[in-house]
Design a protein around this nucleic acid. Structure first.
Lengths: 209, 209
DNA sequence: AGCTGTATGTTGCAATTGCAACATTTTAAA
DNA sequence: TTTAAAATGTTGCAATTGCAACATACAGCT
């Protein structure tokens, strides 16, 4: 995975942070980092752990993304478009804040570390687009069954295996597919009964074709 | 809208294209530009008009994206992740092909036009992420009604108006929301009957709150 | 080991949706 | 202008789904 500071020496990183007028913020556990994202910023988790949470009009809270060390977030990168989102620390967390407009408007094209930084950012954004496209591909399927199978197929192709180890809980998978958890559970049962898959816990084996 | 060659002089564009070893391909009307995207490329429509088409296992063909002059496409940018996609010209079309890996691996950090190019690309990709996030936000709504209202709200916020001029047909809107067209039509009727919206042709007026 | 909160599995039922089939309108082409 | 094709509107009906309510299993904590 490409990181924001790949191929940039620690010395140059320091210069870069100064050039971009970044700031580092420290948060205690269970604090809100950002509620409404007013400005166009990119945040980097330097230490700690946080979650992007959505609270809908019913008060239901859903974990949208988990943010670990080196993960980045921001209005143009994560799923933060609307309001009703919050980023909340789950541990003491150190965050680097970069003004996106400063990155784009900066005329420091002569510093190699600055250009490397932009390139890293470009790679990260294209990877994110790939992920978003995958999710859209899944979400546009009409039935729960087709969503599950599309998810399995993408996973299978990516990992080159027909045994799937779910990277998260079934509850989270239902969120990812945007379907009701119990309805998904039912559909998984049918898929098993009809011999399309086998499963034990979070390990699912594809049996078809 | 940011274009790929923004702030790069024509002279520098020529140098850049040479540096990146790009090629220009000409296609007649109704030709396939790319079927399976084997390589990691970025394409730019220089002249003409094309469409990204998906053909599902039933043989149903859907227009995924329309590509006009200056639009870009490519495995990491458009919705081309799986197979079953084709890019088909609808007019005689001139296409610029750039090898993505060449962009990233290039060490020509000293050419200002090269760095400006990367920056433009970065801006384009973050805009694309915004659009994808919007669509995901809509697709994760559970009912057709909520999808429609979310679509309206995003449009309304973006344009600062409560009168919506659909940028495409209702048929295409149904595709975008990933719902059945006739079911969507029915839901729009209910929304009208219940006084939430007014509509005439592709002009929809929001009446709520 | 016991307790507690979360994850998972199950099921009935009502609401929503997709699908099919058709009528009508609009658009584009000849 | 005529004509064909595409878009839109409508509706019945069956399939799918969300929701609620519950039981059970599991994991982390003291």
């Amino acid at each position: 995975m490409v990181k924001l500071f790949n191929k940039i020496s620690v010395k140059d990183q320091t210069k870069l942070l100064k050039l971009l007028e970044t700031s580092i913020l420290n948060f205690k556990k269970d604090k809100v980092i950002l509620s409404t994202i007013e400005e166009n910023i990119i945040g980097v988790i330097l230490e700690g752990y946080a979650q992007i949470i959505r609270t809908d009009y019913n008060g239901n809270r859903t974990i949208i993304e988990e943010l670990e060390e080196n993960d980045i977030f921001g209005s143009s990168i994560s799923s933060l478009s609307s309001n009703e989102y919050q980023i909340i620390t789950k541990e003491d967390t150190k965050v680097l804040i970069i003004d996106y407009d400063r990155i784009i408007e900066s005329k420091n094209n002569t510093y190699p570390y600055y250009n490397q930084f932009i390139k890293n950012l470009l790679e990260i954004t294209t990877n994110i687009i790939d992920e978003k496209n995958e999710r859209i591909e899944i979400l546009t399927k009409k039935t729960i069954r087709d969503k599950l199978l599309e998810y399995f197929n993408i996973y299978s192709k990516k990992h080159g295996t027909r045994i799937i180890y779910l990277p998260f809980s079934f509850t989270d998978l239902a969120d990812y597919l945007a379907v009701d958890r119990s309805a998904m559970s039912r559909e998984l049962k049918y898929l098993k009964e009809e011999g399309f898959i086998n499963s034990k816990g979070r390990r699912i084996t594809l049996l078809y074709r």
